[in-house]
Amino acid sequence: MSAQVTAAEAKDWLVEKLAVRLGVEQSEIDPNQYFDEFDLDSTEALILAGELESWLGFELEATALWYHPTIAALSEHIAEEHARHAAAA
């Protein structure tokens, strides 16, 4: 992905993927809920992280989910990181 990813776009991506993985409606995904409170095992969480990085086109640092443990917080972080990567390119 080359265009700037906004926090809203990252949030939408995460909500959509999580809803599919959990088999629930997107409206049931609370962006402020901690990732480890979703019914998602660590295997699924890592797979989702890999797919997210593939979509973004760059790797997130391994501690990203630790420091930004909700969809809302991670989306803001992704937007900042994407802007940083775009500026460095």
Binding site: E44, G50, E51, E53
Partner: peptide
Amino acid sequence: LPADTTMPGLRKLYDSFVA
């Protein structure tokens, strides 16, 4: 694994395992 699992997703899991 779910049928729509992709190679980048599996690769991330593998990399974590190897780490």
